[in-house]
Amino acid sequence: MAAGGDHGSPDSYRSPLASRYASPEMCFVFSDRYKFRTWRQLWLWLAEAEQTLGLPITDEQIQEMKSNLENIDFKMAAEEEKRLRHDVMAHVHTFGHCCPKAAGIIHLGATSCYVGDNTDLIILRNALDLLLPKLARVISRLADFAKERASLPTLGFTHFQPAQLTTVGKRCCLWIQDLCMDLQNLKRVRDDLRFRGVKGTTGTQASFLQLFEGDDHKVEQLDKMVTEKAGFKRAFIITGQTYTRKVDIEVLSVLASLGASVHKICTDIRLLANLKEMEEPFEKQQIGSSAMPYKRNPMRSERCCSLARHLMTLVMDPLQTASVQWFERTLDDSANRRICLAEAFLTADTILNTLQNISEGLVVYPKVIERRIRQELPFMATENIIMAMVKAGGSRQDCHEKIRVLSQQAASVVKQEGGDNDLIERIQVDAYFSPIHSQLDHLLDPSSFTGRASQQVQRFLEEEVYPLLKPYESVMKVKAELCL
């Protein structure tokens, strides 16, 4: 049975990233139509530049190519590739079939990587351009969430054990800070992308030097003109047959890092959902379990974690691919890159769409948070109580021993009897502590235990987050809708 299948058929496997999760716009960027249309555009740009620099290419040939950029006979191309065992030459023939007058000058002087690699770089750039505003929107939604809850005390956790208090907004800023680093890295790697350009079979530009009869300047002009037509500021000066596969490492490393950030955020949300302090959106008709109707599973956060793990592992592909590119190139890269580049971007696209949807509907339960604080705060307040007693004339050592005994009794009630923490009640009825009984409410005010959390939130948002989001103001209103 021949390899390949009808990918629109229910009898043929289709990647869930495309069929179930990723956005239509990201799927289109990695589609065959987008790819092969870009090949034709690159052939047109090459012909236009070659004509401008004096090669015998007519206006009629150029116009014929322009008129057929979208006229792609995919069936013919597939048949040609089956016959020739070469995808680029299959599309040269297919393009030439609908451009008979231009057929002889299509791909003039070029090698397969002229269309293959340059198209990949265009796709990487455009895919990054799709991700950047999506990530900015996630940051914006979380920034709104953090600002609104900047002063809401909550129990902090280290080692997932109760620690000092923080605020809900401050905790959210930990998430935002990681995503801001990801946004900066995505922008950097996007701006650092260079075009492969017009380089020939081993990167020496020998074929173009021959076409222009040894004119170095025209060869350099050709490279520059096509690079500018493709919208790049610069091209690699040095290439082998391909652009260095280190570029793929750079791009997928940034995406993998984004995956790590999203995994951490969504894990926190899942843990908070278990504590009943916070939940992701839950639709009115949504079913959490087929057997347990009360369940409210954090399905979206779980999906993000599941896909983020996949995204983090994909960076190993370009690392290994770059390491086995012998001399000017081997074909070890080809099949692998067809999979890992598309999957990385479709996965990143999915987790950003999902995280935006989550961040637009996060639900906080202040009463649950308050109750958990009441359970733990008495123990945390013991040092403040000791200091207040010393100020009232008591002995630190005597007070410490009193607190120690009462704390152990209260802990026994919590752990052995399943009761509430009654340390404060014990202190309130103990005559030894009568000098500070009137101060206990103040000493137990949760806001006095959150330090500068709310001020940190305000400063972080104003100095770091809002300036970073400013270039994306025009796209901030787009909502994230999930079908599944």
Results as ranks from 00 to 15, higher is better:
3 A>V: 10
3 A>W: 09
4 G>L: 14
5 G>P: 06
7 H>I: 11
8 G>M: 15
8 G>V: 15
10 P>M: 13
15 S>T: 15
19 S>E: 14
20 R>F: 00
24 P>R: 14
25 E>G: 12
25 E>F: 08
26 M>W: 00
28 F>H: 10
29 V>W: 08
30 F>L: 14
34 Y>L: 06
35 K>F: 05
35 K>P: 02
35 K>Q: 14
40 R>G: 01
42 L>T: 09
45 W>L: 06
46 L>Y: 05
49 A>G: 08
50 E>G: 09
51 Q>F: 08
52 T>K: 11
53 L>V: 14
54 G>R: 09
58 T>V: 13
60 E>A: 09
60 E>H: 10
67 S>V: 12
70 E>A: 10
73 D>R: 07
77 A>H: 15
77 A>T: 14
79 E>R: 15
86 H>G: 01
89 M>W: 01
91 H>L: 07
93 H>K: 14
95 F>I: 06
96 G>R: 00
97 H>V: 15
97 H>S: 08
98 C>T: 10
109 G>T: 03
111 T>C: 01
112 S>N: 04
114 Y>C: 08
115 V>A: 09
124 L>Q: 07
125 R>E: 03
127 A>R: 01
131 L>S: 12
136 A>K: 09
139 I>L: 13
141 R>E: 15
141 R>A: 15
141 R>L: 12
143 A>P: 00
143 A>L: 05
145 F>P: 03
146 A>L: 01
151 S>L: 12
154 T>S: 10
154 T>K: 02
155 L>P: 03
156 G>I: 04
160 F>Y: 12
165 L>Q: 03
165 L>W: 00
168 V>D: 00
168 V>N: 03
170 K>C: 03
170 K>I: 00
171 R>Y: 00
171 R>G: 00
174 L>Y: 08
176 I>A: 08
176 I>Q: 05
180 C>N: 12
180 C>V: 12
181 M>W: 09
182 D>Q: 02
183 L>T: 13
186 L>W: 11
188 R>D: 06
190 R>H: 12
192 D>E: 12
193 L>E: 08
194 R>D: 04
196 R>A: 13
200 G>L: 01
201 T>E: 00
202 T>Q: 13
206 A>T: 07
209 L>R: 08
210 Q>K: 15
211 L>G: 04
211 L>D: 05
213 E>Y: 13
213 E>D: 07
214 G>N: 13
217 H>V: 11
217 H>A: 10
219 V>R: 04
223 D>I: 00
223 D>E: 10
225 M>C: 08
225 M>K: 14
225 M>L: 12
231 G>N: 09
231 G>W: 05
233 K>T: 08
234 R>D: 09
237 I>V: 08
239 T>M: 04
239 T>V: 07
241 Q>L: 02
244 T>D: 10
246 K>P: 02
248 D>W: 02
251 V>D: 01
254 V>S: 10
255 L>K: 03
259 G>A: 15
260 A>L: 04
262 V>F: 06
263 H>T: 12
266 C>R: 02
267 T>M: 15
268 D>T: 09
268 D>K: 01
269 I>D: 00
272 L>W: 08
273 A>F: 14
275 L>E: 05
283 E>V: 10
284 K>N: 13
284 K>V: 11
286 Q>F: 00
287 I>S: 06
289 S>Y: 01
290 S>I: 01
291 A>Y: 04
291 A>L: 03
294 Y>R: 01
295 K>Y: 00
298 P>C: 11
301 S>G: 12
302 E>M: 05
304 C>H: 04
305 C>S: 12
306 S>A: 07
309 R>W: 03
311 L>T: 01
312 M>A: 06
312 M>K: 04
316 M>S: 11
316 M>C: 08
318 P>V: 10
320 Q>N: 13
324 V>N: 10
325 Q>K: 00
334 S>N: 14
334 S>P: 01
335 A>S: 14
340 C>I: 15
342 A>T: 14
342 A>V: 14
345 F>D: 03
350 T>E: 14
350 T>H: 10
350 T>I: 14
352 L>S: 07
353 N>R: 14
353 N>G: 11
355 L>H: 04
358 I>P: 01
362 L>S: 05
364 V>E: 02
368 V>E: 03
368 V>G: 04
369 I>T: 08
377 L>W: 03
379 F>G: 02
380 M>Y: 01
381 A>M: 09
382 T>M: 11
382 T>I: 09
383 E>F: 02
386 I>Q: 08
386 I>N: 11
386 I>W: 03
390 V>M: 10
390 V>L: 04
391 K>S: 12
391 K>N: 14
391 K>T: 13
392 A>R: 09
398 D>H: 14
399 C>L: 06
400 H>W: 00
404 R>L: 09
405 V>Y: 11
414 V>S: 04
418 G>A: 05
419 G>I: 06
420 D>G: 04
420 D>E: 07
424 I>F: 09
426 R>M: 09
427 I>V: 12
429 V>S: 11
433 F>C: 06
439 Q>K: 10
441 D>P: 10
443 L>K: 02
443 L>S: 03
444 L>F: 14
446 P>V: 04
450 T>K: 06
450 T>M: 05
453 A>Y: 04
454 S>P: 12
455 Q>G: 10
457 V>N: 04
458 Q>I: 13
462 E>Q: 15
463 E>Q: 11
463 E>S: 09
467 P>F: 07
470 K>L: 14
474 S>A: 14
476 M>D: 15
478 V>F: 10
482 L>G: 07
482 L>F: 13
482 L>K: 05
